[in-house]
Simulated assay, not measured.
Amino acid sequence: MTTADLRDTDGPAAPSGKAPVVELRGAGKSYGNIRALHGVDLAVRPGEVTCVLGDNGAGKSTLIKIISGLHQHTEGAFLVDGEPVRFSTPREALDRGIATVYQDLATVPLMPVWRNFFLGSEMTKGPWPVRRLDIARMKKTADDELRNMGIVLDDLEQPIGTLSGGQRQCVAIARAVYFGARVLILDEPTAALGVKQSGVVLKYIAAARDRGLGVIFITHNPHHAYMVGDHFNVLRLGTLELSAARDKVSLEELTNHMAGGAELAALRHELAQTGGVDIEELPEAGDLQASTAATPEGKS
């Protein structure tokens, strides 16, 4: 699967001129004396995939928690539809159309696919107080919604734990879309997947974008991000090192920012002192500085 396949122009073009659904302005979060996030600007527009990249400890999890309503920001502003907000619970974020799909997916492995699709929001029928589950309607709705996303499962009665990791991610995405998500936060959806299953998930990320959702794709893999992303943000030690549109940054530049230019330059110097190591292909400090300067929106 190629980048061109995932960025098919048959769907609606990314409406970059539209106002952001979710926006952070100089946002930050401190835990006592520990500053986990500082001065982050982020805009998520409908019909676009906004990629947030960073190594472990870069601040990606803190960013997710602020937008999803788990934690409140301690500096800057957080806006939804241009209105400043301060969520107290994830339910408040969900009520504003912000849904989060975490790595563990919040599914019950032994329950059927359709039960997991409606987990916590089951359809019922009959008069109170003898209302009962409307199983037939839930099965049909789950099947229809999955097919609308291009996901065809032979048996919705099978336990969701028997699906592949990529299929479970796709069910979680379809569920969020059905329950009214306008902004979809995906927390490292391809981290534990092989090449083929990662391609499946990336395909449905592109499908969610083409349905008009604003997608926040959290990842540490620049190659996956570049296949579907419209805008790229690289976090390093809690601050925004790079913020660039797709046409302003190459995959090589994105990878260099993700890997850390200074760290790579230092590594090249250290490896030069070690016999038997070919360092010719490793970037030099000057090359990395030039790459950063060539990215208009980059911050070194």
Rank of each mutant, 00 (worst) to 15 (best):
R7L: 11
T9G: 03
D10C: 02
P12C: 00
A13S: 04
A14R: 04
P15N: 03
P15H: 08
G17V: 05
P20N: 10
V22W: 08
L24A: 12
R25Q: 14
N33A: 13
A43R: 15
E48T: 15
G54P: 14
N56S: 06
I64G: 00
S68R: 02
Q72M: 06
F78S: 02
F87P: 01
P90E: 04
A93V: 09
A93M: 08
L94G: 08
G97I: 09
I98L: 12
I98E: 01
Q103S: 01
D104W: 15
D104P: 09
D104S: 14
L105V: 12
P109Y: 04
R115Q: 15
L119Q: 07
G120K: 11
M123H: 13
G126E: 03
R132C: 07
D134M: 10
A142R: 09
N148A: 08
N148D: 05
E157N: 14
Q158D: 03
P159V: 11
G166M: 03
V171C: 04
A176Y: 10
V177I: 12
Y178M: 11
I185T: 03
D187V: 13
D187Q: 06
A192F: 03
V201M: 00
L202V: 06
A207Y: 10
D210Q: 14
G212H: 11
G212Q: 06
F217P: 11
Y226N: 07
G229N: 10
D230F: 10
D230I: 07
F232S: 09
F232N: 05
N233M: 10
L235Q: 12
L235F: 12
L242N: 03
D247F: 13
E253N: 12
T255F: 11
H269S: 13
E281D: 14
L288T: 04
Q289K: 09
K299E: 05
S300T: 13
